[in-house]
Write a protein that binds this DNA or RNA. Structure first.
Length: 307
DNA sequence: CTTACGGCCTGGGTGC
DNA sequence: TGCACCCAGGCCGTAA
């Protein structure tokens, strides 16, 4: 479940550990999550990792020109200006994806599907038990077109633009927050957390939010994402950053995963409902339900089973 | 056109 | 110990 804060955390870690390294070779295992596996084998060997960026929930490894020389990459951490990069490796971690460098001699952990041998003897490895992730090498117009499919970065978008986007759609606000074409990087956790903070029910329609509510949501979302980044993301199942350390933001969750627990604001029991096809956690008192929204009965789950 | 919904991919965790 | 089932995020096809 890496969402924006988790991917940002991993990107920062990789920036420290592999920026400027050259990829010597590529070894592939299962490839059904890779757009064009042969493109990786064809284009990556010899290329230098010129920048590590986050784009929504994607990790973007900007690669130097195939003929880039040592000297042209002098400034590590440096801004690889757009012209100097000819292509990028896009990595989406899906739910269970991990990417991190290891000593090449270290045995592969289970579900390792991609290995990039680096010029310092380490291997950048991608593991993904469920292979819900995605990997692709793209360059030129294909890269541009791919990136263009996505909406604004929630940390960058202005309040005006956010309000306009949200109120310009009739879909449920939860669906809008999750729609990567509207806003890039928000997933289930941070959607529910920001809606709780802004006191907006997930099933409300975007077009029916008041300007004030939409502004409140924008502020809540940005604030929560920034705090989550500081705490290196949320480790709810097995998320670990590139150094293998867990995040801490899960301790600050106010809605997500708290079904049956008391709302931090009013003490009402937090509920769970399926909204936009996803489990959604909310306080039924603080986040008043829109008219016409029938909450479907949910099967009991978890160990809180009292027969 | 926009939105809603079900199904699919996979395998770890859980209930029984 | 085994095993059926749930569920996750993104995507796609279909329906309204």
């Amino acid at each position: 479940m890496p969402e924006l804060p988790e991917v940002e955390t991993i990107a920062r870690g990789l920036r420290q550990s592999i920026l400027g390294r050259r990829i010597l070779s590529v070894t592939l295992g299962k490839t059904d999550f890779i757009d064009d596996p042969s493109a990786l084998e064809q284009h990556l060997p010899g290329r230098r990792i010129a920048a590590v960026e986050r784009y929504g929930k994607f990790m973007l490894l900007r690669l130097g020109q195939p003929d880039t020389t040592e000297s042209s990459l002098s400034s590590a951490g440096g801004a690889a200006n757009g012209d100097s990069v000819a292509g990028s490796l896009l990595v989406h971690l899906g739910m269970t994806g991990h990417i991190a460098p290891f000593p090449a001699a270290k045995p592969h952990e289970k579900h390792t599907h991609v290995c990039f041998l680096l010029d310092d003897g380490r291997e950048l490895r991608y593991t993904d038990a469920r292979r819900f992730g995605r990997m692709a090498y793209l360059e030129g117009s294909a890269l541009e077109e791919e990136l263009q499919e996505f909406g604004a970065d929630p940390l960058v978008v202005s309040a005006e633009e956010f309000v306009a986007q949200v109120r310009g759609h009739r879909a449920r606000i939860k669906a809008l927050l999750l729609d990567q074409g509207v806003l890039r990087g928000v997933g289930n956790i941070y959607a529910d957390e920001s809606l709780w903070r802004a006191r907006i029910h997930p099933a409300r329609l975007g077009s029916r939010l008041t300007k004030k509510e939409a502004e409140r949501l924008h502020h809540a979302l940005r604030d929560i994402l920034e705090k989550a980044i500081v705490l290196r993301g949320s480790s709810i199942s097995d998320f670990l950053d590139a150094e293998g350390a867990p995040g801490e933001y899960q301790r600050h969750h106010r809605a997500y995963g708290r079904e049956g627990k008391r709302c931090y604001r009013c003490g009402t029991l937090v509920r769970r409902a399926i909204v936009a096809g996803r489990s959604s956690y909310f306080c039924p008192r603080c986040q008043s339900q829109p008219r016409g929204f029938a909450m479907l009965p949910l099967p009991r789950r978890g160990k809180a089973r009292k027969a």
